[in-house]
Design a protein around this nucleic acid. Structure first.
Lengths: 353, 353
DNA sequence: CTGAAAGCGCTTACAG
DNA sequence: CTGAAAGCGCTTACAG
């Protein structure tokens, strides 16, 4: 079943069939209805590739999850399936939110994962092969981005999430970020309000924008409150649970015990919880813990984690807006968007006297 | 940049360029190399739509997540973004596993979500529009499946996950399921081995194959061990946390207290934990809890949940194998596959005397 | 081994 | 308002 068949059935030309499909204005109501009826009756769907080839948009958006952990190991070396994205609890909700939002906007979505620098060409090829009209890139550190944007065609429409625009912006890439700075600022204000003065930090991966900004904001907040930045109270993590665990142990081993610790994401808070419990300390009685992300799991931790909510659906929505506006050649006012965050208070932080 | 340009540059015909791209055998090494060099140098990627139109596969697989909660509400009525798939912790890992496996097999993947019966046409259209070569369908209850398979073309290659083949199998659909029966069987054996005799159950959605089989297996296991099936110890849930909570409350309110409860998935175990704690009971001292799925969160519950591991990557792998074999017209021996499961013992079940 | 040409199924100026 | 025709960028018999 193709447009020629439908044309024959209805007794019009393929041009006319095409015109009603594409909602051209100058079709008499009667003709339009006849065609629509046949389309429905014969269950006809226009071939997407043919439409694309004839110049239409592919009406699909791409999402590229970059998860390069180890630049020495190319993809084909990774043998354990379980190690792949599957285990990545952070990106999943974003992917899902993005799919939902795209589907709502009548767009299909093509998802690809990238595990090594060698696979960065996938992004370029998806554009060059004309599979997608636009794409969102998430999860990379700044090193990868510059590479990507170097390869990519200047009119491949893409928005990057969590990208440091200062360095890479060639004027061609859009970005959406969350208000990392404000979130951490609020978090520390809250801790101070609760009476905490000895606040430790476990940083995220400082090669990622979120890791960098959150740490900067932390330091600024301490300064603002006239609190000391004790070197023993800084542990450098990388957003993984294990680094949270090790970081917390390092801090606890320093002898001086902080009354509160800010972990730069929830995943590291899980590790920190474990270390704290191993030291026989209780949360929040002995030490308060504050996370960041409000990940799905945070509410189920014991005690439920006080953290900073990041709306993944909101990020997805902003990304898609930027993408669609750009695809439709709309005037874009702001190629950078920032999504707000807010503290969610649970039971892992207590007031001290 | 298209194949004609490359042809001109190298000094051959488009046919030849196409032949090297598609790895035809009879090309002299020298010619092949020249063409490849130009392709690389000019960063040429063949237009996917054109290839598709000329008869090639689209080399993309579809994944349709069916999440029809409420047949009265069509999709456009759902206003709260947060309610969508985003919150669905069960499908996410499967989606990710499927993407990873497909990407490895050099396939792209198109993801779509379906929130109401009105959207079931999406599956059909993806095939008819020739966007995908095959698809996996997950998350539906039997009611939806029969509808889907009715609409769908007999040669749309699809595998259904968690589908009751007895009813719907028209001989055209493939399926992969986990060994629900064996998993529950082992789970109850384990509980009995621990000395439990009064075992309660919170069922899943009995309209889903997994819900149905898990409950059947539970009943059979009790029978096999000569244990009574106490009506007060049965609560009918639907796989959601809240139904686990309500179910557990109902069981606890019955007066007689079971020594163990089997919740048909981990999500309901979360709810059950909450109810048990509200009753001032301790896990596993007062009551043992056994889940199913080994979801990401189960290890972080307090106490860590004893459950049955389901390998989502394995399910994804099986689905893709079936799909690819079918796409490549390979002889398919078994159109049904079953993935094994195994108990993972943690601290929510204790031995009683 | 390789080129000219037809064909895949659409859309869209163009002409009427 | 509508049809005939060109063109999108490939692949693949066909002929040599």
């Amino acid at each position: 079943m193709n447009s020629k068949d439908i044309a024959k059935i209805v007794g019009v030309s393929r041009s006319t069939v095409s015109r009603v499909i594409n909602n051209y204005p100058d079709i008499p109501q009667a003709t339009r209805e006849k065609v629509l009826k046949a389309i429905k009756e014969y269950n006809y769907y226009p071939n997407a590739s043919a439409r694309r080839l004839a110049g239409m948009k592919s009406s699909t958006l791409g999402i590229f999850i970059i998860d390069i952990k180890d630049n020495e190991k190319p993809h084909h070396v990774i043998e354990n399936n379980e190690d792949l994205l599957y285990g990545n609890s952070y990106f999943s909700p974003f992917i899902n939110a993005f799919i939902d939002q795209s589907n709502k906007a009548q767009y299909h979505v093509l998802v690809s994962t990238i595990y090594s620098s060698d696979e960065l060409w996938k992004i370029q090829s998806a554009f060059y092969e004309k599979r997608i009209d636009g794409a969102v890139i998430i999860g990379s550190s700044s090193i990868d981005y510059s590479k990507i944007f170097e390869i990519m065609d200047k009119d491949s429409i893409t928005v990057a999430v969590d990208l440091d625009m200062e360095k890479e912006n060639t004027g061609t890439v859009m970005s959406v970020n969350i208000n990392n700075y404000g979130g951490v600022s609020d978090a520390i204000d809250y801790l101070v309000e609760l009476g905490h003065k000895d606040i430790a930090v476990i940083t995220g991966d400082l090669n990622k924008l979120s890791g960098k900004i959150r740490f900067e904001s932390f330091k600024d907040a301490l300064l603002r409150h006239g609190l000391p930045l004790n070197n023993d109270f800084i542990a450098y993590g990388d957003f993984t649970e294990n680094s949270g665990y090790e970081g917390m142990k390092k801090i606890l081993a320093s002898g001086k015990k902080p009354t509160a610790v800010f972990t730069s994401n929830d995943t590291m808070a899980i590790g920190a919880y474990r270390a704290i419990k191993e030291y026989g300390l209780k949360i929040p009685e002995d030490i308060s813990v504050m996370g960041f992300d409000n990940s799905y799991i945070s509410q189920y931790m014991s005690p439920p984690l006080t953290t900073v909510n990041v709306s993944l659906p909101e990020i997805a929505k902003c990304s898609i807006e930027l993408l669609l506006d750009s695809i439709n050649n709309k005037e874009i006012k702001n190629r950078q968007k920032t999504v707000n965050v807010q503290i969610v208070k649970r039971n892992s932080c207590k007031k001290i006297v």
